[in-house]
């Protein structure tokens, strides 16, 4: 994944956005910027306020206070001007159950003055076999692909994808990720909400972690992880003669943990620890199998920020 060129003017600029439903503060003072051509992710559990934030940016809801500018348009003032230029895939992708895939795409094309050909979109989303099928007969994954196809009918420069791979099997998820990466490579900006970390890591150049209506932290995946976790773990298959006490004394190692058949050495100095492991193994006439350096994941970051796992 290459980082797209960054234009000066941000595509989205949000400052101190707030939206309450009764006593619930769904969005509670959110600020961020999204740059042209980047993949930006809002990561957080269900109910964190991701969808509300995105729906304000799509012109579907009006914020109580705060500024939101998308493609240079004030979304609260000119939602209609905005809608013609963005692509949207909502979380629930049920659409006219009795219409076929082709009919739904044709219908949505009629809402815009410009756009891509229906056949092209069907090919792009690999829906060819299903083009004459009524949408109620599509699988969850196919329905999501149709939702993404509909977000592209007006050839938008900015695309919002709300939980785009929910309900997809791993293969379908992979192929959708490839499509999103291809769209990004064309210079389009992608804003995505997700609670899958792997998805965020693959698709997003930058991320904001949300919980309870607030952004807890934002940055690139590496920044987010490195700012909290200075340690890495050296991992390899356990060597019987090498006991944990001895490994704990290796240079840089702060703690030792067993994990199934493997052992994890948390360390501040990866090269020195690996060197010590190799030397000790050689002395025993062994070779460490499956040796790898594991860094902390976004899951660890989220756990550290909120004290909860992401997918509870």
């Amino acid at each position: 994944m290459t980082t797209a060129s960054v234009a000066a003017e941000p595509v989205i600029r949000v400052s101190d956005l707030r939206k309450a439903y009764g006593a619930t503060r769904a969005v509670d003072g959110v600020s961020f910027e999204v740059r042209r051509g980047e993949g930006f992710g809002l990561l957080g559990p269900n109910g964190a306020g991701k969808t509300t934030t995105v729906e304000i940016l799509e012109g579907l809801r009006r914020q109580d206070s705060g500024e939101a500018t998308v493609l240079g348009i004030d979304v609260a003032r000119h939602p209609d001007a905005l809608k013609a230029r963005i692509g949207v895939a909502l979380q629930t992708a049920a659409l006219y159950p009795k219409l076929t895939v082709t009919e739904v795409i044709d219908l949505f094309r009629s809402f815009y003055g410009r756009g891509r050909a229906t056949g092209e979109l069907i090919g792009l989303l690999d829906l060819g076999e299903k083009s004459a099928t009524q949408t109620r007969q599509l699988s969850g994954g196919q329905r999501q692909r149709l939702a993404v196809a509909l977000s592209l009918v007006n050839d938008p420069e900015l695309i919002f994808l709300d939980e785009p791979t929910t309900g997809m099997d791993p293969a379908a998820r992979r192929s959708l990720w490839d499509l999103v990466l291809a769209l990004k490579a064309e210079g389009r900006t992608i804003v995505l909400t997700t609670h899958y970390m792997e998805e965020a890591e693959v698709l997003c150049d930058r991320l904001a972690i949300m919980d309870h209506g607030r952004i807890l932290e934002s940055g690139t995946v590496t920044q987010l992880i490195d700012s909290r976790f200075h340690e890495r773990a050296v991992r390899f298959e356990r060597i019987a003669e090498l006991d944990e006490k001895r490994m704990a004394a290796f240079p840089g190692v702060t703690s030792v943990r067993g994990e199934d058949r493997r052992v994890l050495l948390y360390t501040r100095d990866v090269p020195a620890t690996i060197g010590a492991v190799l030397t000790a193994a050689e002395a025993l006439g062994e070779e460490p199998q499956d040796l790898a350096v594991r860094r902390a994941t976004l899951e660890d970051v989220f756990l550290d920020l909120t004290g909860r796992a992401l997918r509870d």
Binding site: G59, D80, K83, V88, L95, P97, F111
Partner: peptide, 14 residues
């Protein structure tokens, strides 16, 4: 309920 109205509302359709 199926959010079809919401999806339509996200287009320039009046």
């Amino acid at each position: 309920e199926k959010q079809i109205l919401k999806r339509l509302n996200a287009t320039p359709l009046r």
